[in-house]
Amino acid sequence: MSGGIIALIVIGVIVLIVLFWAVAQYNGFVRLRNLVQESWRQIDVELHRRHDLIPNLMETVKGYAAHERGVFEQVAAARSAAAGPVSGPADQAAKENQLTQALGRLFAVAEAYPQLRASENFGQLQAELTNTEDRIAAGRRFYNANVRTLNTKVETFPPNVIAKMFGFQRAEYFEVDNPAVRNAPRLDFNGNGPILDR
């Protein structure tokens, strides 16, 4: 074998290695992008469940505190905004933030009505909402972990070369801005009266 043929074989092997690496990187980006989208859809399902529970919760509270119209209007407006179209996870997080704050005010109203707190329907709705909030929090952690992995790969060299070539971009985190509402509102009815715990 002449030196030219060996050089061509070496170049061919190097090209094949680079090609296989590029294909592997591309497929990795596709997998990560799909994982981020799938984990967002799981959050979306739980958010819809949360939005569906709120009208029933409001109706139950209205049965005991119908004169609290301002609170009901705030919750309804925040629910409509959160359930409406959004531009992405950050926008959804901001709207969910407002809804969580409005729900906190609704639960504060409920504290003033012992008969409401004792209502089986209210207790069931509250438990379902708390369960849904927990599932949203777990989904948010899973989604954000996937976003972090994708974003790291998009930004690190040499995978970022493939990302730029094929248009893979950073994904948005789903985060609550206000630390006071990072946890779901939870009522704790101890022997001394209700406490709104965040």
Rank of each mutant, 00 (worst) to 15 (best):
V23T: 13
A110H: 10
G84I: 08
L125S: 07
W21F: 07
Q124K: 14
S39Q: 14
A90W: 07
L16F: 01
A93I: 00
A93W: 00
I195W: 01
P194Y: 08
A78C: 04
F107T: 08
A127N: 15
E155T: 13
I195N: 04
E46I: 04
A78K: 06
Q169P: 03
A22Q: 09
M58C: 08
Q92G: 14
Q74G: 02
N97A: 08
Q92H: 14
V10Q: 06
R69L: 09
L35E: 10
D134P: 00
Q37F: 07
F122K: 06
E46Q: 15
L106A: 09
K153S: 10
E38F: 11
F157Y: 14
R186M: 14
S87L: 08
N34K: 07
T60Q: 11
R105Q: 00
P85W: 08
L32E: 00
V154C: 04
V61R: 06
S119Y: 09
N192W: 03
A65E: 00
R33G: 04
R186F: 11
G139T: 10
P89K: 04
D52S: 09
A184H: 02
G4M: 03
L116Y: 02
G191Q: 09
A180F: 01
L116I: 10
F166E: 05
A93V: 01
H48L: 11
V18M: 14
T100F: 01
E175I: 06
H51V: 15
M165Y: 13
R170A: 12
A82W: 01
P114H: 07
R148Y: 07
P85E: 14
E38N: 15
F122D: 09
Y64V: 10
I9G: 07
E133W: 03
A78N: 09
D44S: 15
V154Q: 02
Q98M: 05
D134R: 06
E133V: 04
A112Y: 00
S119V: 05
L16H: 00
A127R: 14
V30Q: 04
D134L: 00
G88Y: 02
A81M: 02
A81I: 05
F72D: 06
